[in-house]
Amino acid sequence: MWDVVHRLGSPRTFYTIAGRWQPWLWALAALLLGTGSVWALLFAPADYQQGDSFRILYVHVPAAILAQSCFVLMAVAGAIFLVWRIKLADMVATVIAPFGAAMTGVALFSGSVWGVPTWGTWWVWDARLTSMLIQLFLYLGVIALRGAFASRDGGARAASLLTLVGVINIPIIKYSVDWWNTLHQPATFTLTQRPAMPAEMWLPLAVMVLGFYAYFVALTLTRTRSEILRREGRKRWVLELGS
């Protein structure tokens, strides 16, 4: 078990294995996102209350789910780095932070645009929207904090600590729609109940969510490989790659 962990934690092994997987994951992401988009925009029936404006759901929900998954992964990577000092964990945490920030921004933007015809306003300071805005600032804070240190190790430790503190915001976002009165509708997908929508509405959403996840994995593999080249550029095995 520990042998496997150490081998995967080695940048060299990761670089090779990720290189083998990444074309397939990019292809899978393109396939799922392409299918999901056509299905969601052209074939899903319009909502009986919201009409076609509900098609924003198909980009809003996956972006919001990914924004939170990405933060949790960043916290796990930060903990692994702080406890076992595995450099690869910090590389992953470094490259996924901008993606998480972008997904948070996309969720906020698509939600605001959706709010105009649905709620009559693009913003309210309610629990779900405010906690999501805090999430965006946490991402930006983690990115800025990492860059503010002269030594890479110092920046990595500070960013990991802030991520571990900030992860408390994740359950707040998740349960905000249950704990407080909010304009925001409750969760579309839960693990315990069947979705309240008909299958022809939630199936394309499931495809979109899977597509976003596949994209996230593909992007993380590609960007982590670049980060390995950047940080380990003086190692012999990296120099041998160029030949």
Binding site: W26, L33, S37, L41, A46, G51, D52, S53, R55, I56, V59, H60, A63, F99, A102, M103, G105, V106, F109, S110, V113, W114, V116, P117, Y215, A218, L219, T222, R223, S226
Partner: peptide, 27 residues
């Protein structure tokens, strides 16, 4: 989009632009 074009297309456009742009940038 049933009259919701000014809302649906910007939301989808920004999302897809972020995904495609991010992918191209990474490669």
């Amino acid at each position: 989009m049933g009259g919701y074009a000014p809302y649906v297309w910007p939301a989808w456009g920004v999302t897809l632009a972020v995904l495609v742009g991010g992918g191209l940038q990474a490669v």
